[in-house]
Design a protein around this nucleic acid. Structure first.
Lengths: 232, 232
DNA sequence: CCCTTATTCGAACGAATGCATAAAATATAC
DNA sequence: GTATATTTTATGCATTCGTTCGAATAAGGG
């Protein structure tokens, strides 16, 4: 036992990052002061400047680290589904992408913090965020978009991108605003339950992704209304 | 000519609300000061206290007004689709719900501000937001959930709620984080174009909503994986 | 032991915040 | 014209913000 980050023996730097992640996810970037974070971590607030150069640096560090974990988990799951050179099914690709997002509770106790932080920053601090996203996520996204495209050869690249965008929306909203559906359903739909969420989300997404292409370039895409009308 | 809110003849109150909507949507609640808003509106900052009782009151006023407009637009579209006692199709219900969200640019020039504001508040000021949402939206949501359920009798109520939740995610994320897909597609997918977004979103959602039920109670739900695997 | 380096701490800074108040300006009524 | 009510402006206040600085403490090598 080398007492790395086992339990009690955290360095001040680690304490700060942990508290920052927690508080940023809970109250947003502008909603939390450096003093709040340092207080929650039980260290002096000047350490934020010492270790991270300032509040923004602390945020960037937290975000980058979290992104790395998430990205690795996703890549590993995708690799498992691709074992033996097999091409993963659409369901499997979606599962590999979604599962780590819903269960990002493993390391420490960080509630589903990354998507939460991410969606907060999208609004509050968009300039900094865009840089962080580009640095940490674009590459990972491209891998999954490619995997999705391989499952869906009948779609244009743009179709896949659009639907990937919608997929992101469902994930982020599930992390950000779970209260509304919980209230509407009187507690019976609980987006904070990863298993239940996945059970509902995957079939929804599979069907959405396999819908006929909507690209304009697709001259003959039969539409009219497709099967839009449901027998009622 | 009563010079209500025609064009140039805005009252200071209106100017404040307009600027507040704009700035809140752009930088978040904590990210904007009362002075910023008043400055942008070209009026004195004390008017915020005079007219709205403070910053929170201003936000509540903006949010409530915007919600009312959105709710009315949605209701009107749904009524149009229900003309003559006919039951609207799934596509039509979705269209009635989505279109006003994507095009909330009409009044003034407010970019798609409401979903943006909404998603910001979800993180920043959740206590105030939850009250506002409950006051302004729950009733409207129930109407659409009911309309959706009528289109999808084979689904359980919980299924419909879950999918409605996913639908909200796609809308909010489209309003909040359009940059990522725009960058990934090198500008060819533009979520700020309502028509293009709808053309992609509606087929995706129709397919997702008509997917077989995923409810656990539904013992016999037909196929194990549906058409999840695509011919490749 | 001393000396160097890395950390931690308390205090303070200027700037910006939300809010309240009083005076000035304008409109309205008589 | 005068008095009253409404709207706008200007200013001040107490607080909090992120950051910086110098001193105090801990750690380690010679």
């Amino acid at each position: 036992m080398k007492s790395e980050a086992n339990q009690v023996d955290q360095t001040s730097r680690e304490k700060l990052m942990k508290s920052a992640e927690h508080l940023f996810a809970e109250r947003g970037y502008d909603g939390v002061s450096v003093r709040d974070i340092a207080n929650d971590a039980g260290v002096n607030s000047a350490l934020v400047g010492y270790y991270f150069g300032g509040k923004e640096g602390l945020l960037a560090e937290v975000y980058t680290q979290r992104c790395g974990l998430l990205r690795d988990e996703r890549a590993q799951l995708l690799a498992e589904y691709s074992a033996g050179g097999k091409t993963p099914s659409l369901e499997e690709v979606l599962d590999a992408f979604i599962t780590p997002s819903l269960e990002s509770a493993r390391n420490g106790e960080g509630r589903r913090s990354l998507p939460h932080i991410r969606s907060i920053l999208a609004a509050e601090n968009s300039s900094l965020l865009e840089k962080l996203v580009a640095e940490n996520f674009d590459e990972s996204s491209k891998i999954f978009v490619k995997a999705l495209g391989k499952c869906l050869p009948q779609l244009t690249h743009e179709d896949v991108l659009w639907r990937f965008h919608f997929l992101l929306g469902t994930i982020y909203y599930t992390a950000t605003g779970p209260h509304r559906i919980k209230a509407l359903s009187r507690g019976r739909c609980d987006p904070s339950d990863p298993a239940a969420t996945k059970e509902e989300l995957i079939p929804f997404l599979v069907a959405g992704f396999t819908a006929p292409s909507a690209a304009k370039g697709n001259k003959r895409r039969g539409r009219g209304r497709g099967n839009g009308t449901v027998k009622s």
